[in-house]
């Protein structure tokens, strides 16, 4: 059953507070929440994903609910819990969905060490994948979002999960959090795509989530093989994108610094990263506008077979 079907069949209200299990890329999430508005948003973003009310073995046991006590009525707040522990300060109640998404990212980054986790956007075409590793603020989410609506399947905008056993990229398509200036840029670039409510003045400024194209969610259990690594950097006002081929050794060093858990994985991290860089062509891309950046990426990735 999908999340949309589950909602249609049962609604939320009858089972408020019960656990909801849903699939998020390779992960099963157990979510306990009484917040109907947050569950509604969850369904709008992840409708095609598998979901269930009966127990499944979960990778993450999370909770998003109203803060207890007086805070329920006065300047109400929301708290996130992982395994019953609260790793963050409460958020304003209105930002519960953003907190859930952020909390889940944090949970993944601190735990999913069965993968080498790159801080990267990832997209696939004809079974071959493009990685866009970058630090926050480099425009990785915006560029991933744009490519996802221009012929690429979104594998993820935040995590490039590399499976050590075979070097494949495991998809983790999530709602794409757009920040501040990216929101109007994407509204203009993708006028038909579904954008959730704007959460003003969060820790990262204004945030609005973009829903990934539905096929990305429907195919979220299909891995892809990495072929290109491009380090993007948004440079305001840059007319023509600057694309440079990178030495693999440099690509390796930059990825080792970019990964969430490279040091933690020790030798496994090293061998996985060496293999990744060997199998990919590495580039850096400075861009000032989405259309020309997408065209440049199309050129370097045109040699895909079939």
């Amino acid at each position: 059953m999908t999340l949309s079907e589950l909602r249609q069949a049962q609604g939320w209200r009858g089972c408020a507070g019960d656990d909801l299990y849903y699939r998020c890329g390779p992960f099963i999430v157990q979510l306990r929440s009484r917040l109907a508005d947050t569950l509604d948003l969850l369904e709008q973003f992840y409708g095609p994903c598998w979901a269930s009310r009966s127990p499944a073995v979960a990778h993450f046991q999370v909770e998003v609910n109203s803060a207890p006590g007086l805070r329920r009525w006065w300047r109400s707040q929301t708290v996130f819990a992982l395994d019953g522990l609260h790793p963050f300060e409460p958020f304003p109640r209105a930002q519960a969905f953003a907190l859930l998404e952020w909390g889940l990212n944090w949970s993944i980054a601190t735990r999913a060490h069965q993968y080498l986790m790159l801080h990267a956007g990832a997209l696939e075409r004809k079974g071959q994948a493009l990685l866009l590793p970058a630090m926050p603020g480099a425009g990785k989410s915006t560029l991933s979002a744009a490519l996802a609506y221009r012929g690429w399947r979104l594998l993820g905008d935040e995590f490039g999960l590399i499976r050590p056993a075979d070097g494949a990229i495991v998809p983790l398509p999530r709602a794409i959090p757009l920040k501040n200036r990216s929101i109007p840029v994407i509204r203009e670039f993708l006028p038909d795509a579904f954008l959730g409510p704007v959460f003003p003045k969060t820790r990262k400024g204004d945030v609005a989530h973009l829903r990934p194209p539905l096929p990305s969610l429907e195919r979220q259990t299909e891995p892809a093989h990495p072929r290109w690594i491009t380090f993007p950097r948004f440079v305001p006002g840059l007319r023509r994108p600057q694309l440079k081929r990178l030495e693999k050794s440099l690509g390796f060093t930059r990825l080792a610094q970019n990964a969430f858990n490279y040091r933690l994985l020790g030798e496994d991290g090293f061998t996985t990263l060496v293999r990744l860089v060997r199998e990919c062509a590495c580039f850096s891309l400075d861009y000032g506008d989405l259309d020309t950046a997408i065209a440049r990426i199309a050129e370097i990735t045109a040699d895909a077979p079939r």
């Binding site: 099963i28 499944a56 073995v57 990778h59 069965q114 040091r263 994985l265 020790g266 496994d268």
Partner: peptide, 21 residues
């Protein structure tokens, strides 16, 4: 073991290995 359990049992090995080093 179910895949979701196996994932976690294996992922949990990384941190202790790091601390031991």
């Amino acid at each position: 073991c179910p895949a979701a359990a196996r994932d976690q049992l294996i992922a949990a090995r990384a941190y202790p290995g790091f601390l031991q080093g």
